[in-house]
Simulated scan of single mutants.
Amino acid sequence: MTTEDAQFTVGQTTFCQGENVTHALFRIEPGIPCRDAREQSSELMGYVRELTIIGLTEDRPMMIWAAHYLSAMAKALMDDAELGMAQ
């Protein structure tokens, strides 16, 4: 695949948390190759899975919260990659 054929993130997706969702904690940067963004999202979801299992089996709620935040980050990456691929 050449650079001209590659698809890139658009930088429109934000991650907001808490009651006041008008202030984004972060935004996906534009120009990340969508393939890389999707691979990173998959990596994060692997960590989410592990943290969830630890949190549930060892009664460690902080691990569940960590998984919650990581899954939101992974979703933002995936959503922005999808926007880039749709262009």
Rank of each mutant, 00 (worst) to 15 (best):
A67P: 13
D80F: 10
M63D: 03
A74V: 07
D59H: 07
D59G: 01
P61S: 01
S71L: 10
P61M: 01
D59T: 04
R60G: 05
L83K: 14
I64T: 12
S71W: 07
S71A: 07
K75T: 10
M63S: 10
Q87N: 12
L70A: 11
W65K: 05
M63K: 01
M85H: 12
P61R: 00
W65M: 08
H68P: 02
L83V: 06
L83E: 14
D59R: 00
Q87V: 13
A81N: 02
G84I: 12
M78P: 00
Q87I: 11
Y69C: 07
A74C: 06
E58M: 11
M62S: 07
Y69M: 09
M73C: 14
M62E: 06
I64V: 11
A72E: 14
Y69G: 10
L77M: 09
P61I: 01
M63C: 09
M78E: 11
D79R: 05
L70C: 13
M62G: 02
A74D: 02
G84Q: 11
D80N: 15
I64D: 03
W65C: 05
A86T: 15
M73Q: 12
A66S: 15
A86D: 14
R60E: 10
Q87K: 15
L77F: 15
M78L: 10
E82Q: 09
D79L: 06
T57N: 04
D80L: 13
L83R: 13
A76P: 00
Y69H: 09
D79T: 10
L56D: 02
A67F: 02
M62N: 04
L56S: 07
I64N: 01
M78H: 14
D79H: 13
A74P: 03
E82P: 04
K75R: 13
A76Y: 00
M85V: 10
T57L: 00
L77G: 11
M63F: 14
E82S: 12
Q87E: 15
E58D: 15
W65P: 03
H68Q: 07
G84S: 09
M73V: 14
M63P: 04
P61L: 02
